[in-house]
C-alpha cells in the first residue's frame, strides 16, 4: 500500500479551486491520551479541518513553545509510543478520508528506522511528514523513502531563509511548503507578522507548490489575514491550548471559526495588515 501524497495535493488544489485557503490543524498524538487525542483530531476534521498534522511527541522539542512542550510532556508521561502515533494516523484517515501528516523531530524517525517509519506511515494511510529539524542537506535518506512510499516531505522555511535556501528547499520538498510566519518557536501571537506575506511572495517566484503558513496563528481573524495570500493556514498551539484547558467545546468552536476564517467573505482586519499585491 502506498502513501497519500496525491490525496494531500488534491485536497490543497480543491481548496484553491474553491477560492479559499485550506485549514491545516495540528495536535500531538497521545494528548491528553491516545484515544482522547484521536477523538480530538476527529473533532477538528468534523469542524472543518482540511488537512491534519499529528505531532509525534518528543522529549526535546526545540522548535516548540511552552504550550506544545507541555502537551508533549503529558503525552510522553502517558507512555505514548510510535505505534500509538501510527494508530492515530490510521484511525483518523480511515474515519474521515482526510490527508494526515506526521510532524516529528528527526531523532525518533531516525532511531525507529527511516525505511520502517516510512513504510508503516504509508501503510497507516499517512500522507507524509513535516520534519522541522531536518534541513535539506541532511534529508537524502528520508526523501528516498518518502518517494518510495508516496509520502510528502514538507520542509519548514523561515523569513530568515536566503533565496538560495528557499530554492533548494522547494526543489526538494513535496506536498506543500511550510512557511513559518515569524522567527521563533510555536505558540499563539497577538498578530501575524508581515514577514509571512513577504516570505510567501518570495516562495511564489520559486515554486508552484502550495504555500501553507503557520506559527503564531491563533484566531479566525488572523487566519483570514493569512488566507488572503497563502494556500493554507496552519494552527497548532491555539488548538492545543483549548485541550490543556480541558475544553473540548472550545476546540470545536475555535476550529469552526478558523474554517470560516479561511473562506472568502470573512471580514478582514479593520486595518489591512498585508499588502496582498503579488
Amino acid at each position: 500500500m502506498s502513501g497519500n501524497l496525491k490525496l494531500l495535493t488534491d485536497t490543497l488544489a480543491r481548496a484553491r479551486q474553491e477560492g479559499r485557503a485550506a485549514l491545516v490543524t495540528y495536535l500531538p498524538a497521545g494528548f491528553p491520551s491516545v484515544d482522547g487525542g484521536i477523538d480530538a483530531i476527529l473533532a477538528t476534521v468534523d469542524a472543518g479541518a482540511d488537512v491534519v498534522e499529528v505531532g509525534l511527541p518528543h522529549s526535546d522539542p526545540v522548535l516548540d513553545g511552552p504550550v506544545i512542550q507541555t502537551a508533549d510532556d503529558i503525552a510522553l508521561r502517558g507512555g505514548v509510543r510510535i505505534a500509538d502515533v501510527l494508530r492515530t494516523v490510521r484511525e483518523v484517515h480511515a474515519a474521515t478520508g482526510t490527508p494526515v501528516l506526521v510532524m516529528s523531530y528527526w531523532n525518533p524517525v531516525s532511531r525507529y528506522g527511516v525505511e520502517r517509519f516510512a513504510r508503516e506511515l504509508a501503510a497507516a494511510g499517512g500522507a507524509g511528514c513535516v520534519l522541522p529539524d531536518l534541513p535539506v542537506a541532511e534529508s537524502a535518506q528520508w526523501r528516498r523513502q518518502a518517494a518510495e512510499h508516496d509520502l510528502a516531505t514538507v520542509f519548514v522555511v523561515a523569513p530568515s531563509s536566503t533565496d538560495e535556501h528557499l530554492a533548494e528547499t522547494v526543489a526538494a520538498g513535496t506536498g506543500f511548503v511550510y512557511a513559518s510566519a515569524l522567527m521563533g518557536v510555536t505558540g499563539a501571537r497577538e498578530s501575524v507578522d508581515e514577514a509571512a506575506a513577504v516570505l510567501t511572495r518570495r516562495l511564489r517566484t520559486l515554486t508552484d507548490l502550495p504555500v501553507c503558513v503557520g506559527m503564531g496563528v491563533a484566531n479566525a481573524r488572523q487566519a483570514a489575514d493569512v488566507a488572503a495570500f497563502a494556500d493554507g493556514v496552519i494552527v497548532g498551539s491555539a488548538l492545543v491550548a483549548t485541550l490543556l484547558d480541558g475544553d473540548r467545546d472550545a476546540l470545536t468552536r475555535l476550529t469552526a471559526e478558523l474554517a470560516a476564517g479561511v473562506r472568502p467573505g470573512y471580514p478582514a482586519s479593520a486595518v489591512p495588515r498585508f499588502s496582498t499585491a503579488r
Binding site: 534541513p135 530568515s160 535556501h165
Partner: peptide, 14 residues
C-alpha cells in the same frame, strides 16, 4: 556531526 537544525537557524549558522 552534521547540522540538524530548523531552517530558521540555517542562515545564522551559515
Amino acid at each position: 556531526g552534521g547540522r540538524f537544525v530548523p531552517q530558521a537557524l540555517v542562515a545564522a549558522i551559515d
